[in-house]
Computed example of a mutant assay.
Amino acid sequence: MATAAPETEIVDAWRIACDGGEGALGHPRIWMQIDETEGFVECPYCDKKIIHREFEGKV
């Protein structure tokens, strides 16, 4: 059985929040800063990869 790939989200802001997106089954809301040289950040709880729109297709 293969493991599903983590979710990816494209955003316009450099500072973003993640709460797992599943209501009570999600995780605590945390705020993260996207590094302006790397263009993305990964949530330490749910492994969602959040990519800034300027880096879409480059990461």
Rank of each mutant, 00 (worst) to 15 (best):
I16H: 03
R15I: 15
R53C: 09
M1S: 12
K48Q: 13
G20S: 04
T8F: 01
K58H: 10
L25V: 05
I16T: 13
K48C: 12
E36R: 15
P44A: 07
R29T: 15
E22K: 13
D35A: 09
E22G: 06
I50F: 06
G20R: 00
P28S: 07
G23E: 03
C18A: 03
A5L: 14
V59A: 06
Y45L: 08
W14P: 01
I16W: 04
D47V: 10
E36F: 01
K48N: 05
V59L: 06
W31Q: 11
E38F: 05
A13R: 14
D35K: 08
H52I: 01
R15A: 12
M32G: 05
I30T: 09
G26F: 10
T8G: 00
I30A: 02
I16S: 04
V11P: 01
G39Y: 11
I50P: 00
C46F: 10
I10A: 05
E22C: 10
K58Q: 15
A17D: 14
V11T: 05
T3I: 12
G26M: 08
D35M: 10
H27R: 06
C18Y: 00
P44E: 12
K58I: 10
V41D: 01
Q33S: 13
E9W: 05
I51D: 01
G20D: 02
E38D: 14
G21K: 07
V11Y: 04
W14I: 06
I16M: 04
F55E: 05
D35W: 08
E56I: 00
D19R: 02
R53H: 14
H52S: 07
W31K: 06
K58T: 14
R15M: 11
V11R: 01
G21N: 09
E56M: 05
